[in-house]
Structures are given as structure tokens and as C-alpha cells.
């Protein structure tokens, strides 16, 4: 069953067409990779799905319902969460609070309830704290609860972004270069984490990644973008041997050598 579909979506920036007529269908509970050289339009593709940019053409459906052009906060409510290529944590806030912000849409405390600190609000806050902590434990950051997010090591910051995204209880999780800047050990941990998330929570995962070892190991489907266009798609084996893909990454000359 399809969870998320993009139907010929397009985005222009002035004269540049960053994404052109791209259609992809993501199956429920699958792990899919979107790859391509720098500037191919991968992040722009994510930005359209999450509502940060609205597409200039085409449609996006989540669970058969259209989400095209909705504001990012509504799309988050509908069940799409993401991480960012250039980490966007709430730097001055604590690690736990970062995750608690992710719970925003599931908290119901109102103005008066907060002001008078009603038992209901207190219980909800307490519940949120524990859930946030359990998510931190889940991604392996339980020891960092009270640190400021900006003081975390790089790899840990990426994991925190994942925990924060999970806190929204997403149906679809978009990871934009989650392994960038990680050492091999961290990358292996991350690979396991992604698989575990899918298995534990039945979340549909889409990732952009340059680490081909990771991509080949966990993706069920791979889509390749180049200059905004979809140039190939298939299972890892097919992509590995696709001449178009090799050309996109290495240039024409690479083939003749």
C-alpha cells in the first residue's frame, strides 16, 4: 500500500529548475533512498514534501489525501517528520527540551490550564518528559538529557534530530544525509537505528545519503536524481550497475575509462 506519493512535482528558483517533474511512490513501511550528486535537487524534494517550499507544479499525497502546498506545521500534524542536512537543532535548549518540542502537536495544555497549573497539565508534562527521555534512550542519548544541544558531538546531534522527529509520532520520516560527518562506527550504529525504527514503529523511511555502503545495505528502493530529474530507480543491485547513475556521479568520461 502506498504511504506517500509525489506526482510530477516541480520547483523553480528563478531560472533554475531544482526539481523537474519528479514522481515517486513510497510504500508503507519501506525504506527508500534518494541519491544523486550535490545540487541534484534532493533536499528541495524533501522541502516540498514537508511544505517548506510549495511545488510549482504537481501533487503530493499522504495516505491518499492531498497535502500539496500545506504549511509545514500542518504537514507535521498529518504525520511527516524530518531531519535537516545542515543540522537545525534548538541550540540553546537542553537535549530533553528539544525532544519535548517535538511532542508539541500531541500536547493539549491550554492557556488557562498552564497558568493555573492544573493537575491535568502537570500530568501531561510529566508524561511528555518520560516519553522524551525514553526516546533519548532509544537513540542512545540518555546520558545527555540536561546538556545544551549545541554542546553535543556532531554524531549525537544527528541522532538528537532523529529523536526529535520521532517525538512527533510520524508515519513518514525523512532523513536528509543522516550519516554526514559520522565516523564508521557511528554510521554502523545509525544503520542499525534506522532499521530498528522501521521495525519497531512501522514508520516509512526516506533518506538522502551519500554513504553508498549505508544506502545499499538498508534501502529497498533507490531513486536517483540528477539536475532535478529522476534518472534511475530500482533495487540496490540495479542501481549499482546502472550506467546513467555512474555517469551522473562521475561524469561521462568515467564510462569510457
Amino acid at each position: 500500500m502506498s504511504m506517500l506519493t509525489a506526482t510530477s512535482i516541480t520547483k523553480h528558483f528563478g531560472g533554475l529548475t531544482a526539481v523537474k517533474d519528479v514522481s515517486i511512490n513510497f510504500e508503507k513501511g519501506s525504506i527508500t533512498a534518494v541519491i544523486g550528486p550535490n545540487g541534484a535537487g534532493k533536499t528541495t524534494f524533501f522541502n516540498m514534501i514537508t511544505g517548506i517550499y510549495s511545488p510549482d507544479g504537481g501533487e503530493i499525497h499522504l495516505d491518499q489525501k492531498t497535502i500539496t502546498g500545506l504549511k509545514p506545521n500542518f504537514i507535521a500534524e498529518k504525520g511527516i517528520a524530518r531531519t535537516f542536512q545542515n543540522i537545525r537543532l534548538f541550540k540553546e535548549m537542553s537535549v530533553l527540551e528539544n525532544v519535548m518540542v517535538g511532542m508539541h502537536i500531541h500536547l493539549n495544555s491550554g492557556f488557562l490550564g498552564t497558568l493555573f497549573s492544573t493537575p491535568k497539565v502537570r500530568a501531561e508534562e510529566e508524561q511528555a518528559r518520560y516519553e522524551a527521555y525514553s526516546l533519548l534512550e532509544y537513540v542512545g542519548l540518555a546520558d545527555w538529557v540536561n546538556h545544551q544541544a549545541k554542546n553535543l558531538p556532531y554524531g549525537a546531534q544527528r541522532k538528537l534530530e532523529i529523536a526529535r522527529a520521532l517525538a512527533t509520532h510520524p508515519k513518514v520520516l525523512l532523513l536528509d544525509e543522516p550519516a554526514a560527518g559520522m565516523n564508521p562506527k557511528e554510521t554502523t550504529e545509525l544503520t542499525d537505528l534506522i532499521l530498528q525504527i522501521r521495525d519497531d514503529k512501522q514508520i516509512t523511511i526516506i533518506l538522502i545519503e551519500h554513504d553508498m555502503k549505508l544506502v545499499m545495505r538498508i534501502s529497498e528502493q533507490i531513486y536517483v536524481l540528477d539536475h532535478g530529474q529522476l534518472i534511475a530507480q530500482g533495487v540496490p543491485e540495479e542501481i549499482r550497475n546502472n550506467p546513467n547513475v555512474i555517469e551522473a556521479y562521475l561524469g561521462k568520461s568515467a564510462l569510457s575509462v
Binding site: I52, A76, F84, L89, G102, T168
Partner: peptide, 15 residues
């Protein structure tokens, strides 16, 4: 505070 730190990330969290 989230908005102060990063508007785009806040929106992506549903704020």
C-alpha cells in the same frame, strides 16, 4: 524558545 532558535525547524515540528 524553539521559534527563537530556529523558525524552520519549529514549523517542521508542528509549531
Amino acid at each position: 524558545k524553539a521559534i527563537r532558535e530556529d523558525e524552520i525547524a519549529s514549523q517542521a515540528m508542528g509549531i
